[in-house]
Each structure stands twice: as C-alpha cells, then as structure tokens.
Computed example of a mutant assay.
Amino acid sequence: MIKITSRTKQAETTKNKIYECGVKLIRINGFDGVTVEQIAKEAGVSVGTYYYYFESKFELLREIFKQADDYFLKEVKGHLKAEDFKGQIVEFFGKYADFNYLNGLEMVKKLYTCDNKMFNIKGRAMQNILEDIIKNAQVKGEFSNTYVATEITRVLFVVARGIVFEWCLFDGEIDLKSEMEKIISNMVVGYMFIK
C-alpha cells in the first residue's frame, strides 16, 4: 500500500484549488477571457506553481474534459439500467444531459464554442463506453451493421452536442434531458433499421 504523505496531500490540494479557481473564472469569462496569471492569482499561487501542475491553459481545459470522462467511467459504465440497447443508449445520453446540468448552464455556454477543440478528441472514455454498447447491439443483431460503431457514436455525439447548444442558446429554458432522450431515441430507431 502506498503511503500518502502530507506533502502529497498538499500537492493534491494545491492542484485542486488551481483547477477550481480556473473553472470558476472560465465559467464567468469564458476560456479565452481568462489568463494563466488570473487563475494563479485567484488560486493564491505563483504562475510558476500553476505551470508545475498544468503545462498550459489548454491543459486545464483538458482536465475539465477528463472530469467528464471520469464521471462516465464512475457513474455510467456498468450502471445503465435499461435492458435493451436502444434504452441503454437513450439512458446514456440522459446521463450526458445530467452531466451538463451538473456543470451549470453558464459553464456549459463557455465550453460550447467552435474554438474548443476538445470536442474533436477521439477515443475518450465516454465515447468508448457508447461505442461498446453499439458494438454489442450490432453483434446481437439489434442494430444495423451498415455503419461501424465508431461512426454511429460520432453522429450521436454531434446530435447530442447540438441539443446542448440549443439548451445554451435558449438560456436553459428547454428541458435538456427530455429533449435529449426524445431526439436520441428517434436517432437510435433510425440506426436500428438502416439497411
């Protein structure tokens, strides 16, 4: 068993403080409206300390997206209750909506910009979880094999991001979760019957 020293605890506390202050400032000002210097000042650390824990401002953004993947690994993978594949996919995107609610409308608005290339990263945990569900559905013949699971995953995320963008555009006035589940359900039915 690895012994956790007080120095290790302090380092983790400092990194978390920088992360939380960065998220707070991004929530208020957007990613491009925040500098490393501002984040360091808000966290009460030097710029050098910031760079000790995060290589760049982009690295902080990467950490925000890592939190999303960690959520899906902890809360979604192996925890979906639906018995059929269609239900699992719809439930998966219900959890995607829940995660956006957890982040809050203002934070999500700041992240959903065409300048945020983190949405382009392939092979993230949440994508892999969905892709495995789709592959299993294809193996069992419940989902068409016309398209590979990777492509279906990509398209479903494009649609889901569009729904989240609309939620942002209308300042949270739409019910994100019910919209997500309704639209994804229709998409999934389409993929089940494509020949």
Rank of each mutant, 00 (worst) to 15 (best):
D69L: 05
G123R: 09
T5I: 13
Y101E: 08
S6Y: 00
K15F: 00
I133C: 03
T5D: 00
K57Y: 00
K17I: 13
T146G: 10
K140E: 10
A43W: 03
V159N: 05
V148E: 14
I134A: 05
K17C: 04
V45P: 03
A137T: 08
M192K: 12
I129E: 00
G48P: 10
N136I: 03
K24T: 05
N120L: 15
V189L: 04
E179W: 14
S56C: 14
K135Y: 06
D115Q: 14
F72T: 06
I2M: 01
T5W: 09
E75C: 05
F85A: 13
C168A: 14
D175P: 06
E181V: 11
W167P: 02
I2H: 00
Y50F: 12
I4V: 14
E37R: 12
E20F: 08
L169W: 11
I184G: 01
T13F: 02
Y50K: 03
K81F: 00
Y191R: 01
N136V: 02
K109A: 13
G162Q: 07
S6Q: 07
S56A: 10
D70R: 13
T150M: 03
V148G: 08
V188L: 07
G104F: 11
L60W: 04
V108P: 01
K109C: 12
D84R: 15
K24D: 10
K86T: 13
I184V: 10
R27I: 07
S6P: 00
I28Y: 02
K135I: 08
I121W: 11
S6R: 12
I133T: 04
A40D: 00
E75Y: 06
Q138R: 14
E173K: 15
D115R: 15
K110H: 09
K140P: 05
K41V: 08
L105W: 08
A125R: 03
Y53G: 07
K117C: 09
V188Y: 04
T153S: 07
H79C: 12
I194R: 13
L73C: 10
G162Y: 01
I194G: 06
F143R: 02
Q127H: 12
F93V: 04
I152T: 01
V139G: 11
E83F: 09
R7K: 14
G44E: 01
